[in-house]
Design a protein around this nucleic acid. Structure first.
Lengths: 349, 349
DNA sequence: TAAAATTCTTGGAGCGCTCCAAAAAATGGT
DNA sequence: ACCATTTTTTGGAGCGCTCCAAGAATTTTA
């Protein structure tokens, strides 16, 4: 690859002049400019290499998005929530004219990814891993962490998941439901884990603050109605697990209401209900979480704990871009009641 | 920001040793290593700056995705098609451990964006703009252009849009439809444009090969049934235009079948039908284009010209990553018949 | 026509790093 | 205690660029 210097030599001018031809052509006498351009063409020089400029100028003009947990970026793009989050981030990037880098990294390469990412700041998906935070801090880049409060010195944005979870349960108990099942998230690879009442392992501390908090909200909401979460079957599946709905229906047939951790999971339930001819909400009520656009278009339209996902992504990007004093933002949630919830079925068995 | 040299000075060792401490610690005597690490900590040195490494090594380890036309990345993320495409790309990026840079650029800054993008290759959304191609070629980066054949020297991937369009029309004429409307894409900002039969401006050459080809397929399919596209109202709206459905229903009330250019547009139609209490497919049939996941979950489930969007994105990324001899790939489409199409309503008026 | 003003062009400095051949230090064998 | 090995550390070279102060060339003015 030819360089500025090569072109300069060929055209009989200095490096600096060639640079000017490409960056501030008005500074170069037209005749000379043409000579330089000809030389560049002849050498197949395609303009100054951004690497060089970068080293000198020091700005990447990009922000990095690092998926939560150990997820790959394709997994983020698969989930309705993830897509909307990225959309929100991209909105702010559009406004700022910034590139959005979806940074990859498996469990082992994650730290290297952060170390090497060509970005001016980071948005970290929710994560229990303090190591990631430290990695980013090392680089002294502005960053924000999602759904995981990491203390007053660190930018964070989270929703009030507990309140949302409580509202969902209240809505259902208010309708008269007494038999619940919870479709929760498994944060490690593997098949669904089923926690039946009375069994030893309770999954109440999943290690992801996001999950913990919602589960805790469910617990509290149930307690308000004199129900114990210990009597509720909890199924944990990895996001996108296609069998999730089947497992819930098979293992918790007596449940009249199903609480989930995301719209995606709720959609899975709805899909499985269609497959089995189970009537929603006649036979079971289903509640989603997140309030993504998809939740409004399911059959039936879904009752869900809505948050402003797009706004959250956008705010995250703005916080990174603006790089002001760290703050911890807690966003409100709102239960959106649609048609996937109703009074429980008559107790026939 | 301290540099390797600064740390070296503070620890009484050379630049090279400090570099080794961070990149190949096993090469450095533990005791010395510790001294260097202490110095780094004291100075607040967060590891070698990626800019320097980049200049030396020359690999960005990222591929760039440039939205089609003059769209912003948020617009891509808004459309079902765009999201699935990005998902496909991200799948290949995950496999390759590459970063996916969603490159921004308004009409004016687009060239600069390409010039400066910190990527090893490009995926260009479909575009009529030869200038973009030239910009990328200048940088001598591998790239692929989507839905726009640019000749044998240039990587391209497109679907067989014409066949898809023809299949859609055949399906509908086969059901007995004689009255059509087409919801097409407006590629410039602005309100919907309505082309009624008999009016002067026919929109058959939109300038985007993708649109042209589909429109041409519609034309051909109609001709096969002795219908002329000139008798068909064509409404052009920008993607995501919320009023699109309303305009179509208002301006083409006699249409029994509505052809669209994307699932997104078809979803808009379906939404508007719900709003107006128009029965689909009883009153009108609607056909989508793309076969995104969303199309299977609409109410009613949508008949659509399906392509493998994810596969396309993935292939595009692979072509860029592998950087082999240029090829032009044409992907097949398949009409997926679901419940949004049926025989036309009885001719009551 | 010379001096002054203006327009162009130049090349040094510096951005921060990694590689590598060679020098220095440590280790082992006799 | 000395030489041969092996392990560590070093610093030059080079990656490609842009900025900028200063020098060179040209144009204007008197």
């Amino acid at each position: 690859m030819p360089t500025l210097a090569d072109v300069g030599k060929a055209a009989g001018v200095s490096r600096g002049t060639v640079s000017n031809v490409f960056n501030r052509p008005e500074l170069v006498r037209p005749e000379l400019r043409e000579r330089v351009e000809a030389a560049a063409r002849a050498l197949g020089f395609g303009g100054p290499d951004p690497k060089g400029r970068l080293l000198r100028d020091g700005k990447f003009n990009a922000i990095g998005f690092m998926p939560p947990g150990a997820y790959a970026i394709s997994e983020v793009m698969r989930s309705p929530y993830g897509r909307e989050l990225v959309l929100g981030v991209s909105l702010a990037c559009d406004e700022a004219g910034t590139t959005l880098s979806l940074v990859n990294g498996t469990d082992n390469t994650r730290f290297a990814s952060i170390r090497d990412a060509l970005v001016d700041g980071f948005i970290l998906g929710h994560s229990a891993d303090i190591g990631l935070i430290i990695s980013v801090q090392r680089r002294r880049l502005p960053f924000v962490i999602l759904e995981s409060d990491a203390g007053p010195d660190i930018n964070s944005i989270k929703i009030d998941g507990r309140s949302g979870a409580i509202a969902a349960v209240r809505h259902l108990t208010g309708l008269g439901h007494r038999h619940f099942a919870i479709l929760s998230v498994r944060r490690s690879p593997g098949p669904p884990i089923v926690h039946m009442p009375g069994q030893a392992t309770r999954p109440l501390l999943a290690g992801f603050p996001l999950d913990d908090e919602r589960l805790d909200g469910f617990k509290q909401g149930l307690a308000e109605a004199n129900l114990s979460i210990d009597d509720v079957p909890i199924i944990e599946t990895i996001p996108g697990e296609p069998s999730a709905g089947a497992v819930v229906f098979d293992r918790a047939p007596e449940a009249t209401a199903i609480l989930t951790m995301s719209d995606w999971q709720a959609i899975t339930m709805l899909d499985e209900a269609v497959r089995r001819g189970v009537d929603v909400p006649g036979h079971v009520s289903v509640v989603g979480f997140d309030g993504t656009a998809e939740s409004a278009r399911t059959t039936p339209p879904m009752t869900t704990v809505a948050q402003d996902v797009i706004g959250k992504g956008r705010l995250a990007a703005r916080m990174v871009l603006d790089n002001e004093a760290p703050r911890q933002v807690v966003l409100p949630v709102e239960l959106v009641v649609r048609a996937s919830t109703a009074a429980p079925r008559a107790k026939t068995r």
